[in-house]
Design a protein around this nucleic acid. Structure first.
Lengths: 348, 348
DNA sequence: ACAAATAATGATAGCGCTAACATATTGTGA
DNA sequence: TCACAATATGTTAGCGCTATCATTATTTGT
């Protein structure tokens, strides 16, 4: 297919542009200290030769670590895979590499495992998805060795580390408002476990929406769940056994929403005609059940990308002794994914 | 914590071992052309200094591509994330790097996208998870440029590319036998789509087990599904509406098994007391429903690792002009995961 | 036992890039 | 206008490793 002439080197670019290699190098990195006309010449040469810098040579010469680590636990969740994909892409785009490390043993071994990983690989920064983003053991250790860290969707925001997350409260608020605008007034809520990230925020957003629209919040419309299918099942059974049934149920995550669908079915309630159901997360289960679940999509890919961006910025600030504002907090947008489980309440 | 003395270089190792750097380099790579005593000396020095070779320097000096590409489509599946994790780990262990590329556009653009990716990065080999492992477009293109490729769980095994997979037929056979040994004789089966990898093999294993144990295979116990929750739901409804109901249902994947659980519930059949259900894949949904699903676990991580191993071997064989047996086929072991949806049939 | 073949090891020269400093060019105020 | 600062660009010397070939130690056949 394509003729394989040796890849262009920086030397070629420099020659073609009529400048020294250093200038090319600066155009690639600095941007600041090169005159516009020179930059243009160089860029043109780069384009013409389809020059791509050699990563190995780069990191060898600069001896700067262009290696980040992605630490995870509970690899089974699809969530982690998604994050990983996003992180990997962004790393490539920025000329960084990513190593993955799993922390699955005992909590007391974490420090040892971490130390090994870091020493072996000369890692410059760390990206921490949940639940590690809230592990005191890990966080304490990382704080002690002064390495850039970015947390994804942490619950607690102490430790001074930067993080990215989304506005869960706002998402719950908007989803609830959507239900209200569809005409629902009897909306029940299945809470998540008190200690889980987002659980409280989601409930908060729900309550705020009800208040804004002057709707009541009967205590018997609020049930506690544990984020598991089973707990959602039990909660939904209680909710739907009542005389004055809700016409919509907002479940704090998709697993419990899926369970709610099962209960509705068992009660011969058709979804969405007789009961509307919404979830949160846009997990895999949301589209593998029927009807497909209306839910809130977390911007997982963007989170990962943003996280890498911030991490790299911190790392480079650290290298150049520049002062970077710390910690960085980044709140991303979400999407309401309207699928098949919401309809206006039927006239009963 | 740890004192940060400069990382040991190969020079240090050579000095300590009393040999030249070249010898150290050979110990790290060749192994063959170095005497045992020398190897031992070097290894000892490496250990003592905790020496770790510098990847950048290595690939710069050897100018050999230590870069593999992981191409995927439909990133939404947790499956891909798992594969990616496994592949990444193995790559690191072998001193390789992995870039990920998604092929989500139109089929006719694949070649262009691929070409871009490969040219840009000097990629040495490609790992292809499903469904790309069966994409004629991609396979044809890759065949045309003569690059090492490894397919994961392909349906078709032509194209001469190596692949790794598991013995789906045997897994289905064993799972069915397990059901039979529990005392079940009336076992129904929900098939997958005819064109999907594994769908047929799983059915085949099921049939073989019935035959071995002299059990009948009534036509009304076989239903067709599409691997979706909804299709499983419909299939299960038909299966369970019959007068002479099966006491166990083998569903060709977990989503449909989950749907079967829903139908059972709707029919007031308790699982596993009155109906046993098994699935296939050990997808996320298997443990997010209640009771947790007994199913077949695909060795996804091992598959990815093995795939990388084979790919690297091919690449190195290609570099050294050595003849590697082609194509490599690798069939991995599976696990039967006994959870909560199987019990002996109740005396009715 | 000795030359010839073979195996093990070493010396040298980069791989493609950037850090650090040197130099050339431009701008500034008196 | 000139000294001087500020900015832009070039020069030199490696980063840590491996390819290549030269050299030295070991084996082998007769």
């Amino acid at each position: 297919m394509a003729v394989k002439n040796r890849n262009a080197t920086m030397q070629d670019v420099a020659a073609l542009a009529g400048v020294s290699m250093m200038t090319v190098s600066r155009v690639l990195a600095d941007e600041r200290k090169v005159r516009q006309v020179t930059q243009d010449k160089v860029q043109a040469a780069i384009l013409q030769l389809n020059y791509k810098p050699n990563m190995s040579a780069r990191s060898l010469a600069s001896s700067r670590s262009r290696l980040l680590a992605f630490l995870y636990q509970n690899s089974s969740e699809g969530y982690v895979g998604q994050l990983l994909i996003g992180a990997l892409k962004q790393c490539q785009a920025c000329g960084y590499n990513l190593v993955v490390g799993s922390l699955d043993g005992k909590e007391e071994d974490f420090a040892k495992v971490l130390n090994g990983l870091l020493e072996r690989n000369n890692i410059g920064g760390i990206i921490l998805p949940p639940p590690l983003s809230d592990s005191t053991t890990v966080l304490d250790f990382l704080a002690s060795i002064d390495i850039p860290v970015i947390k994804i969707s942490p619950q607690k925001t102490q430790h001074g580390f930067s993080y990215v997350c989304m506005d869960e409260s706002k998402a719950a608020f908007e989803m609830t408002e959507y239900l209200i605008k569809q005409g629902h007034t009897k909306i029940a809520f299945i809470k998540g476990p008190a200690d889980h990230s987002g659980s409280h925020l989601r409930y908060q957003g729900f309550v705020k929406a009800l208040e804004k629209h002057g709707l009541a919040l009967p205590e018997n419309y609020i049930e506690k769940g544990l984020f598991t299918y089973r707990s959602g099942f039990e909660a939904a059974e209680i909710l739907l056994a009542q005389k004055d049934r809700p016409t919509a149920i907002f479940s704090c995550n998709d697993d419990m929403a899926a369970a709610t669908l099962s209960v509705a079915q068992k009660c011969n309630l058709s979804v969405p005609d007789q009961l509307s159901v919404v979830g949160f997360d846009d997990a895999a289960i949301a589209t593998s059940i029927w009807p497909p679940l209306t839910t809130v999509r977390q911007p997982i890919l963007s989170m990962a990308e943003k996280a890498i961006d911030i991490l790299i910025r911190q790392l480079e600030a650290k290298n150049t002794e520049a002062d970077e504002e710390m910690p960085q907090k980044n709140v991303l947008d979400f999407d309401l994914v309207m699928r098949g489980t919401v309809l206006p309440p039927s006239a009963m």
